[in-house]
Nucleic acid binder design. Structure first.
Lengths: 208, 208
DNA sequence: ACCGTTATTGGACGAACGCGCAACAGAATT
DNA sequence: AATTCTGTTGCGCGTTCGTCCAATAACGGT
């Protein structure tokens, strides 16, 4: 196969890994699968990565990290706290569910793949602390009322995860519009936002 | 090894499978693991089940169904609505997290394995509708105030899942006592229970 | 045009996998 | 006590896994 620079080849390997993982699942992705996807030999993968665990961890990090920085961008562009929460929720449950499937795979595999666990744990924390910051800003601005931002962030995050989980694992089992309202309601309860400002803001974003 | 009747042996195989699956994950459980767990030969498993897939599917159904009926029993024994919610939460996140690993595996594999998806979806619904019923009873008895029990049940369930998930997938990352309080707080917010009656009730159960 | 560097190959290695089968052993039947 | 039935054993089969390594081929500097 065409000779590539180390950087090009590294990302090519990770992209091929993600393509296979989205199809077969992260845990069921083998070295030979990745090589076949690229059209190269399998030995090439180990020339760039010490172990298959590293390959999977880096591939997951690439996919999930992309979503995370996308969310950061969307949140930073938002002017007020309400819009920021709405942007956060919208980023978390995008139209494409394939990344959520990777998260489910990662959580399932984490207990027995140390590298993958470390990445999953770290990214999970970054999502959480991003939400904590949004909440604290809102509290400072007197838009939110929240006695325990850390706890509230975990609960809101859990609801987002839970809704996405139902859709990905069990199919279209909860209506998408319903789920959107329910997530917004969770945030409203936690942050004591008057009326339905959050529901409206998130609904408007979801409809767009 | 001791000779058993077909029924005894079948359940012994499923129990051994679960013991291993709780430790290593459903997908990583092998025929030899199960045999070693029972202290028998590996050939014995194939004398009772056509394939390893059948073993795993039956094992998951047995474990998840068992937990569900245990929860039903604990809830039915509780006299008032507060105690019933506390029993529900306690059943869902017992001292032993091992069942949660099975759920993570099931959710991860559900989209790719129809048979497993059906079981996972059905049991997930039963947990949900059980909680809906508890909430409706509490509303009728004027203990809870809840405009949308179905939505609230999904959100409470999501929080329970989310907390268990963090512990199983990422290790002791959130303090156990904190998680217990946070789950109780979620229920308090959703059901508009005065003061901290739920936090106390669930905390008392968790401490026991 | 040469040569050193290195990306890439392709197969070997041992371990572990699901599965199948002939032989064995213990309970039930006669 | 002899015989039948069947739960159980122990190992072998073919495959696939992650990993490793000597050989090869393509690129860049001189």
């Amino acid at each position: 196969m065409a000779r590539m620079s180390p950087d090009e080849r590294s990302t090519a390997i990770l992209d091929a890994t993600l393509a296979v993982a989205r199809r077969k699942g992260l845990g069921a992705t083998t070295v030979r699968d990745v090589a076949a996807e690229m059209g190269t030999s399998s030995g090439l993968i180990h020339h760039y990565f010490d172990s298959m665990d590293h390959v999977l961890a880096n591939a997951f990090e690439r996919a999930a990290g992309q979503d995370l920085s996308d969310a950061r961008g969307a949140v930073e562009q938002s002017s007020d706290s309400i819009a920021r929460i709405a942007a956060f929720v919208a980023s978390y449950s995008p139209g494409d569910d394939s990344t959520m499937q990777l998260w489910l795979d990662a959580w399932s595999e984490a207990a027995r793949r140390p590298e993958l666990q470390a990445v999953s744990k770290r990214l999970n924390f970054e999502w959480h602390s991003m939400l904590v910051e949004i909440i604290r800003d809102g509290v400072s601005a007197n838009v939110f009322k929240c006695p325990d931002p850390i706890a509230s962030a975990w609960r809101i995050l859990s609801v987002l995860d839970g809704m996405a989980l139902q859709r990905v694992a069990h199919g279209e089992v909860v209506d998408r519009a319903d789920a959107s309202v329910w997530m917004a309601t969770a945030a409203t309860l936690e942050l004591d936002v008057s009326a339905n400002r959050l529901v409206d803001a998130i609904g408007a974003r979801a409809g767009a």
